[in-house]
Design a binder for these strands. Structure first.
Lengths: 302, 302
DNA sequence: AGTTCATGATAATTTATTCTTATCATACAC
DNA sequence: GTGTATGATAAGAATAAATTATCATGAACT
C-alpha cells in the first residue's frame, strides 16, 4: 500500500476518459507506461479499479469509491501546488516593509515614488517600528523586509543584510547658541543632549557617539520622534544629534542651527534586511538598488 | 512543481521532529536520503521550507503554510489508504448475497447455518430475486455474490461462475393420478403442465425439458413460488416439474406424488457467480466449498 | 584557543522505479 | 477471413531514490 500521486493521476485520467490510450495521451506518457502503473496500483489495492470491457473501460464498484477519494487527494495536492506557485517568484501580495521611525518620514517621500515607478509590479505595506520589533516581525513572518540602521544579532533564522548607504550625524542647536564649526562632541555638556526614548537605535547610536553613560536617563524627556526633539531644541531645552537624512525636513525649522561634526565618520549605516530563506530575494535586491538610486538622482538639499 | 507524497511525508516528519536525523529515523530511511528529498522539494518550491539553525530546525513562514497544506494532502491520502485496506482481504461488511426464488427457500436452511459455523467472520445480507435482477445487481455493485442456475450471458463486466452441484428435476402429480415410473416427459399433455411466472429461469428450464413452445402462456395461472404451484398440483389442477432440492420441503405435502423422470440428466446446475474483479474472490471460493459440503454431510432426504 | 560532538550537506555508487519501443492477444467490424 | 482498435506484456534504457562514507560548521567544553 504505497501508491503515488502519479498513479492516482493516471487512474483518474483513465476514469475520466474511459480509455487507456487517451488517458496516456492526456498524461503525456506512453500507453504501456500508464497501463503498468494502473496494474501496479490495482495489485497494491488487491483488487481491480477498472473493468476492461470491449465496449470501453468502466469503473468497478470499488473503483468508483477509489477514484472519488483519489480525486480528493489530488485536489489537496493541487491546492498545495497552487499555493507554492502563488508564493514563488514574484510576490502576489503587498510586501510587508518595516522601517524604523528615525528613517521612515525622511526616506519614504523619496523611495516610495521611486519604487512605484521602477518596480511597478511590487506593492507595499509600510509599517514603522523600532528595530527589535521589526526583526521579530521578520522572524515571525509578519514582515518581509525591514530597513534598519544596526547589524542584527545572530541567532534565530539567518538574515541577509544589504547595506544601503551611510547616514552621518550632525548637531542641531537652537539658533541663538553660537558654536564654532566643526563641533567636537566631547565639548558638549552631557546633560544638554536630548535623546529619543529607550529602544530607538538612534538613541543608542547617539549615546555611543557622544561617549555618554547609557544607564543615565534624564527622565524628564520623553520623545518618540525626531521632530519632537527638534522642537525641544528650538525652544532652547538642549541640543541633539540628527541624522543627515532628517535635515531636508527638520532643517526647515528657522529656529535651529545645524552644525557638522569634527569626526566625519560619526553616523549610522542604513540597511535592508530580510530572511535569508525568503522567496523574494531577487525582488529585495532590486528594491535595494532602487533605494540607493534615490541618493544620487534627486540632489539632496541638506 | 512535481512533488511526491514521499517528499511531503519527509517534510512533515522534519516539521514534527524539528530534526533531520530523527525525521529520517522516523521515516525509516537514511539521513542523506531524507535531506536530499527535502532539498529537492525546496528547490521545486523555489524557496526554503526549513531554517536550519544550530538550535534546531524551524519552519520558515512559507514552510508553516506549506506543511499545513501538505498535511492535508497526506490526510486524504491516508483516508484513501484506509479505505483500500478496509476493502481488501476480508470483507468488513455483510456480503450481499442474491439467490433465485426457486433455490432460496430450499437451500438456505442448510447453507446459512453451515456458513455461520464454518466461516464465522463473514456476514450476509440475503436477497431473493430473479436471475436477471441478480446479474444486474452484480454488475451495478449492489450485490457481491449470486446463486443462480443458468450460465450468465457475456457482455458487461466479466463474471466468474463457480459450479456448485447438479439439481435434477422430478415430476410432481396429485396423489390420485396413477403414473408408471420413470415418467417420460413427452407423455404429459402440455396443457396440464403448470409453470412459474415469466422471468423465472426454472420456468424456461421446465419448458425446455418438456419440449414446450415457450411463447404460449396459459395465462390463467400466475405463480411466483413453487410452493404455490405445488398447491395447484395437490388440487388436481395439473402437474409440474420440481427441482430435487425442493423435495425435502414440498414432498411433505401428502396430497402430491413425486415421480423420477426417465431422463436422469434433466435438471439444472446451481452455481455461484461474482464479478471477476471482486476483492473477495477468496471468500467466495470458500463459500462455494461450504455450500458443496452441505450436500454431503447432512444426508438429504430422498 | 583547541578539541570534541552534533548536525545537516555533499559525493560516489548501487538499487529501484518508471519510462520507451516493439510486440502480442483478443474482440469486433466488414 | 482480414483489418482495426485496444489493452497487456517484454526487454532494455533512463530516471529517481536509496545507501555508505565523508565533509563543513558551529556549539560546548575543557
Amino acid at each position: 500500500m504505497n501508491f503515488s500521486l502519479r498513479q492516482l493521476r493516471y487512474a483518474v485520467a483513465v476514469a475520466q476518459t474511459g480509455h487507456f490510450g487517451r488517458a496516456a495521451e492526456l498524461s503525456a506518457v506512453s500507453q504501456p507506461a500508464l497501463s503498468q502503473q494502473i496494474l501496479l496500483l490495482e495489485s497494491q489495492c488487491g483488487t481491480a479499479i477498472f473493468d476492461r470491457l470491449k465496449s470501453g473501460v468502466q469503473l468497478t464498484p470499488f473503483g468508483r469509491d477509489f477514484i472519488a477519494r483519489a480525486q480528493e487527494v489530488l485536489r489537496s495536492a493541487e491546492a498545495l501546488e497552487g499555493f507554492v506557485l502563488s508564493y514563488s517568484g514574484k510576490p502576489n501580495r503587498p510586501l510587508r516593509f518595516g522601517i524604523i521611525p528615525t528613517v521612515a518620514p525622511y526616506l519614504l517621500p523619496d523611495i516610495f515614488p521611486a519604487l512605484q515607478e521602477q518596480l511597478p509590479d511590487l506593492r507595499f505595506t509600510i509599517s514603522e517600528n523600532r528595530t527589535e520589533a521589526l526583526l521579530d516581525g521578520l522572524l515571525e513572518g509578519h514582515l518581509d523586509l525591514v530597513l534598519i540602521a544596526t547589524d542584527p544579532p545572530a541567532g534565530g533564522p539567518r538574515l541577509t543584510v544589504e547595506p544601503l548607504f551611510d547616514d552621518p550625524f550632525v548637531l542641531a542647536t537652537s539658533q541663538d547658541v553660537p558654536t564654532e564649526e566643526p563641533v567636537a562632541l566631547s565639548s558638549i555638556p552631557p546633560d544638554r543632549i536630548l535623546l529619543l526614548d529607550e529602544g530607538h537605535c538612534f538613541r543608542d547610536q547617539a549615546i555611543a557617539a557622544c561617549g555618554l553613560d547609557g544607564g543615565r536617563g534624564s527622565g524628564t524627556f520623553s520623545a518618540t520622534s525626531l521632530s519632537t526633539i527638534v522642537e525641544f531644541v528650538a525652544n532652547g531645552q538642549g541640543v541633539t544629534l540628527l541624522p543627515q537624512i532628517a535635515l531636508r525636513k527638520e532643517a526647515n525649522n528657522p529656529r535651529i542651527a545645524i552644525h557638522p561634526l569634527n569626526d566625519p565618520h560619526t553616523g549610522r549605516q542604513l540597511r535592508l534586511a530580510w530572511r535569508e530563506t525568503t522567496p523574494f530575494r531577487t525582488s529585495f535586491e532590486a528594491i535595494a538598488d532602487v533605494i540607493r538610486g534615490t541618493r544620487k538622482e534627486p540632489p539632496t538639499l541638506n
